[in-house]
Nucleic acid binder design. Structure first.
Lengths: 129, 129
DNA sequence: TGACATTCTTTACAAATGTAAATAATGTCA
DNA sequence: TGACATTATTTACATTTGTAAAGAATGTCA
């Protein structure tokens, strides 16, 4: 569990998502994976990754010539951190308005609405019991 | 409408929320309002506010000795920006999982779930038509 | 056992952000 | 009309973030 809420910058999100999809993985692999989208050089990518290690977002382990990276936080933890940040600052902690704004703001397909409805129903059951 | 999505730092959120609640208002009024929570001096608060004016988040108008501030973006716009940021980075644009994570992550009361259910129902109607 | 290709390490620098001291300007009231 | 209190302006500095060049180290294959 994390004491301080996890907060990631845009660049950090890009990197950690690439890591989640490949871990364990090398820095060159990540830079290559992200190059099309970011144009980052190896230096840039590597610097980011090492800073993320320092922050406890990634873990690094040296293996011979190369360093192997893996995530130190799960996707769910990071998602939660991001959500809580928004909840706290943009919605003053009020969850319902936030869900509302979200539902209203995006083009939701009927099937998605069904899924959400089902989710809420099951949630209600859980709460009731 | 805004071309570039609105993104606010934590400090900026604090300020703009205080402004929304009081506008038009002076910088000293904002620093006073936030002091208990932030300990910011007048200088700090003022610097922030002027930078926010430069970014187009606030508007300033000089009136005699003092400057009067007001917001240049609405609360809804800012909330949307924050939500879209999270949606894009943390959930790769997938709205349903985001709502799901949100619903699962907070202690929602039965009444809130009811409200959400109603919201989804009305949304479904809108989509269908 | 070298030459190469790959990977790493160090160092740097600009922009953005958080924070504020010092100083100047200006209404206002006695 | 001057002294005070209030507000504003300028300048500064540390930290974080984004970006990367230059050079050093090292595994590998001919």
């Amino acid at each position: 569990m994390h004491q301080t809420p996890i907060e990631l910058t845009e660049a950090e999100w890009a990197i950690i998502k690439a890591v989640w999809d490949r871990e364990p993985c090398s820095a060159p692999a990540i830079q290559e994976a992200l190059f099309a989208a970011t144009q980052w050089t190896y230096s840039t990518t590597r610097t980011m990754m090492d800073r993320m290690v320092a922050k406890g977002l990634l873990r690094a382990e040296k293996q011979g010539k190369m360093t192997s990276y893996r995530s130190a936080v799960t996707r769910a933890e990071a998602q939660r951190g991001e959500l809580l940040y928004t909840l706290k600052h943009a919605f003053n902690g009020a969850l319902t308005p936030m869900v509302q704004c979200l539902i209203e703001s995006g083009p939701l397909k009927a099937s998605e609405l069904d899924a959400l409805e089902a989710l809420i129903k099951s949630r209600k059951k859980a709460v009731k019991k």
